[in-house]
Every structure is written in structure tokens, then in C-alpha cells.
Design a binder for these strands. Structure first.
Lengths: 138, 138
DNA sequence: TTCTACATTATAATAGTTCTAAACTGTTGA
DNA sequence: TCAACAGTTTAGAACTATTATAATGTAGAA
């Protein structure tokens, strides 16, 4: 059994009740050193590997959306049949290998800051995402 | 009646048979001075406004995908419940107003070229897309 | 004109996601 | 401690965008 008090505090402090489902999902998403990308489907598989108490699909969706809203997850804009999420919420961009359907972080040091020299009146910038699509070089 | 020989040539030269459905869709997509963004649903509505001969949904999907493949349309990577396409195939980026679900072109002159100082071995870059999400400034 | 490969069509199927409404649970405060 | 309530979970239905199917139609070549 892991020490979950950290997650309990984290959840409670952001106004989310620390239910056992949410704590379990926190463990799966945030207990690793390395951050990673996942789809809902990936997460469901991880959950069923990690525990015998199954978590309903609706709860997985609810939780992922709640975590996204609280800033614990980021959604990555890709055209795909499913949504990709990232446990790395720090500023960074992505490669997307369409043939392999593989998402790869780009170290922020490897990207010159993107300068947008125009604004939309009455709007403020929420995020700037760069997606670099790659394919096999022949 | 418009002069469609241009579209007929365009279609034929790219190996697509110039059917009346494809020509009609060309008229709707490419007859305007200004380029624009659309979803499949938007396009279906435009078609039903523009003509009495309805075009089946499957054909609309087929045609949009064929046009995309030929480079007449670009798909814009956004997380959304539906895909967005752009009749502007030149290099440029986008603002996305999530509250209004509104996509806005960013003039390429207003964006400093995005420099990616890393590569994935064996892969070549296919596209670099910047998506700037905005929200209402309070 | 006839043939054939390509296109269109209506409809069914699929898949990701959201909704619903009932059961359950964490939290608060008496 | 316990009742009460709001927030949460759940199974399954519903929804929606998209793709597949298979029959019919059509453009283009011979």
C-alpha cells in the first residue's frame, strides 16, 4: 500500500472529494518519475492491471475531465479518433508520428519561444501548442 | 451557372473524376475570395442551401477526404467533437476560441518561424502547426 | 455503344464520449 | 455518533461523428 495522503490532500485542496477511485487514478497517473501520454482507453487498461476493483468507464471520463479542469492533466490537440492527455502539464510541445500514432514530447529547450505578434481584442491567450507531425523519411 | 471548367480540369488533373457532386463541392469551397474553416456539418448545410440535389453524407466525407489527400484542404488539429478543415492550404496557424468554438487564421507574418532544434531519427517533418487557444479576458 | 473501374447512395455499423437516474459515500454539523 | 445532504460512482442507454457495406449509377476509354 502506498502513501496516499499526498493525493488526498491534493484532491481535497482543489475541492475534489478524495474517493478511492480518484486516489487510485492519481496513483496510476502521478506515481511515476516520468510523465506520459495516454488515451482514456490506455488508462482503463492500466487501471485493470493495477487493481481488481474495477472503475467504471464513466468515472474514468469524469475523473480525467476533473483533473484536466484542475490543471493536473493537459489535453493535447491532435486530429485523432480519440483524445490524448498528458501528465506533463509544464510548457512543452509535441511530435506526432501519424503512422505509429505515437506522441513524443519535445523538450522545451529545443523550441524557440513562439512569438505571436497579433492579438484578438477582448481575448487573452490561454495556451500556445505546437504540434509537429512527422512521417517516415524514405 | 458558373464556369466549372476550371474545377473539372483541377479534378481530372489530380486523378479524380469530375462528378457533379465534386464540382458542386468545389464551387462551395473554392469559389470565394476568402478562405474559410468548416466542419463536415457546416459543409452539409452549405450544400443544402446551395442546391436542391442533395449530396449524401458519405459522399461529403469521401470528397473532403479526397480533397485533403490531394492537398486542396487542410485538416486543423484541435480537440473537438468534430474535425475542422481549412480551404486555406498555405502555411499559417490558428487561434481557437474555445468558448465561441471559433477558429481564426493567424497571418503568417504575425508569427515568428517556429524553430525546432531536435529531430526524430528516421522521420521527417511533415507539418508544424501552432494552435493558440484564447479565452475571454475578464 | 459497351465495358469497366470509379463514385454515389442509403443504411447499417462502429467507436468514442456523454447522459441518466439510482445507489453509494465523504463530509458536515447537531 | 449519527443523520442529512451534496457530491460521486455506476451500468447501461443514448448520442454523435465517422466509417463500412453493398447495391446502383456514371464517367471515360475503346
Amino acid at each position: 500500500m502506498l502513501n496516499n495522503s499526498h493525493y488526498i490532500d491534493k484532491l481535497r485542496s482543489s475541492g475534489l472529494r478524495p474517493t478511492k477511485q480518484r486516489i487510485k487514478i492519481c496513483e496510476i497517473l502521478f506515481n511515476t518519475e516520468k510523465t506520459f501520454h495516454f488515451t482514456i482507453n490506455d488508462l482503463v487498461k492500466k487501471i485493470s492491471k493495477a487493481t481488481n476493483d474495477k472503475i467504471s468507464l464513466a468515472t474514468v471520463y469524469n475523473t480525467v475531465h476533473a483533473f484536466k479542469k484542475k490543471g493536473y492533466l493537459k489535453e493535447i490537440p491532435i486530429n485523432s479518433d480519440q483524445s490524448y492527455f498528458d501528465t506533463n502539464t509544464s510548457h512543452h510541445h509535441h511530435f506526432y508520428d501519424e503512422s505509429q500514432k505515437d506522441l513524443i514530447d519535445i523538450d522545451d529547450a529545443d523550441v524557440e519561444p513562439v512569438k505571436i505578434n497579433t492579438r484578438i481584442p477582448g481575448k487573452k491567450i490561454k495556451s500556445v501548442e505546437v504540434l509537429v507531425k512527422v512521417e517516415d523519411a524514405e
